[in-house]
Design a protein around this nucleic acid. Structure first.
Lengths: 327, 327
DNA sequence: TTCTTTATGTCAACCGGTTGACATAAAATG
DNA sequence: CATTTTATGTCAACCGGTTGACATAAAGAA
């Protein structure tokens, strides 16, 4: 039997004042005697009063909630990114409403529609879906990460093209003659393609023919493994692989073992992301590290500015190469 | 200049009906002519009307929000767990408010207090903090995962003791003579200690002396590495290690390399958790796998039951050993 | 023809806080 | 002593939906 929750009138009655007075104590507004404050606080304590956040939100027209829409949270990169976002938002008094789109447009749209109902004060988006026009028709402050969502949504990205250059250059410097790249299917728009472009440009400059194998983020692991095995079968001459993320790089390293290739002697590998979790489990992996925590900080700062009504423009942050031993 | 949001009265005026009629269309209540429905929907479309979720929540006294309080999300185990929880909750019409306590009692308490203000319909908790009495003083439906929060909060756990037995038994079966264990400091209450107890019990039965090194989840990686190096220095005779989580197992494998130990020839390793991300990056690791997805499903089902006012009791789910090659 | 039942719609109270407008008394100022 | 300022508190409207109670008309049943 749930007993009726205590409301502000109950506190007022208990303390022998009006509800406005209680509200004033709660919000520290106007003139109040210490005596009154004490009385009210005692009453609140006694009744274990908890102000109803929803009622306040309705009046104030703000929820202090920010929605995060990302493909998933079960991934070293997105996990670290969302953790950093949550942390930074919390510092500024915001709580986080998490939505994993799982690259399911249906889910993303439904999620978005709900949040647009003045359920959140702002949105940070890193999901891979296009064709969701809701993003354009809203006046809700939005910032996107590594993803172009709509003309009027500022983007925080890292320098993907340069990352692609760094990775490819490293393999070239190592003397690799047959460098292969893995990336998303080209019809899925993601900033990862910048990495591929850099790879292709640089490889052509060096007279090599770029070869890209397509591995989708959402493919089941078994399929990813199958594609990678195919690389070794199709191109036994491969001596360098630039993977567009560290998970794929990890798979490549494992499968190289199956094919009796020693790393880095027979095969050099460069990954991408450099998230903490991967750095811990695969410290030997040479990878391009994105400044995940800074990206989160920047995105939150930009969102805050937009919520405050300021205009902000997109930013690009630098990446760097981390030397493991695989390249 | 933010234009005033459209409210239900605007739609009513546009459609030439009362606001109640609009609300009925929205909620499909009572009798409505197709004609009226069409009129109203056209008006909503035309004005791009979005019902204010907060107002509805205030009246309905439910938010369809569930709070998740966990130490962090940037971890293979918790990442997968929270992803599964989000997924399952979404299926049932709930959205997720995420709170990472980072094992900071201050943050956890503050977070909790806010959510208790009828901001969420329920709570799923897996944070490591004790001494937070707010958990006991609330009538909010709560379920905890792998954590004893309060007498009246049901727990979903996996069979940690058996997990400890399986891991230790495997190392014994492999013929290890000097088995060492890593676990939390003993003053931090966590179900991991069950794993340690199993290890100690079994080892004593076999006439070996249990030795546990303490590595806290929140220790910086450098410190974790230092502790692990100490193991090899203190006990060069070690030939088997049972780590209380896969991240530590990964670190151990790396550091074993530093000390020129071959795995599994010189040193056998068994980890714990068996989360997807770790399985992908370290498929060679033999580990005790927790049924993460089932734990999430179970927890959500239990929470739903509690929200519906039903009584539920704690559950324990089985674990199994996954054969990699490290033991 | 009278009484139900069905169809359609309106009114106003309510959810639980917040705050502008206003009242009153005491203290400070001229 | 009159006037302004400071201190303290009350009233009622408002945020934006939802819904029980109630009105009215048309169709069906007795």
């Amino acid at each position: 039997m749930a007993k009726k929750p205590v409301k502000i009138d109950d506190v007022a009655r208990e303390a022998g004042v009006s509800k406005t007075t209680v509200s004033r104590v709660l919000n520290q507004r106007g003139y109040l005697s210490d005596e009154t404050i004490a009385k009210v606080q005692q009453a609140m304590e006694k009744l274990n009063y908890r102000p109803n956040a929803i009622a306040r939100q309705l009046y104030k027209q703000e929820t202090k909630l920010v929605g995060l829409i990302f493909p998933t949270i079960d991934d070293p990169f997105f996990g670290q990114l969302e953790a950093a976002l949550e942390n930074e938002l919390y510092r500024r008094g915001y709580k986080v409403l998490m939505g994993n789109s799982q690259n399911n447009p249906e889910k993303e749209r439904s999620f978005l529609r709900q949040l647009l109902n003045r359920q959140v004060d702002g949105l940070i988006v890193g999901a891979h879906n296009q064709a969701i026009n809701e993003y354009q028709r809203t006046s809700l402050p939005i910032v996107s990460i590594e993803q172009i969502v709509s003309r009027n949504v500022p983007v925080v990205a890292s320098d993907n093209y340069n990352g692609g250059l760094l990775a490819t250059q490293r393999l070239l410097d190592d003397g690799c003659q047959h460098i292969i790249h893995t990336n998303y299917p080209e019809d899925i728009p993601t900033p990862n393609h910048e990495r591929r472009l850099a790879y292709e440009d640089l490889l052509r400059q060096h007279g090599q023919t770029p070869i890209t194998y397509h591995i989708s983020f959402d493919d089941p692991v078994a399929k990813k493994r199958a594609i990678i095995r195919q690389i070794f079968r199709d191109h036994p001459e491969v001596d360098g692989i630039f993977a567009d993320n560290d998970t794929n790089a990890g798979l490549i390293m494992n499968i190289a073992g199956e094919f009796k290739r020693l790393i880095p002697e027979d095969l050099r590998v460069v990954g991408y992301d450099g998230a903490n979790a991967t750095r811990v489990l695969l410290p030997q992996l040479t990878t391009i590290q994105q400044p995940i925590d800074q990206m989160a900080k920047r995105a939150v700062a930009m969102l805050q500015a937009r919520i405050n009504g300021e205009q902000v423009s997109s930013t690009m942050l630098p990446v760097k190469i981390i030397d493991g031993g695989t390249a």
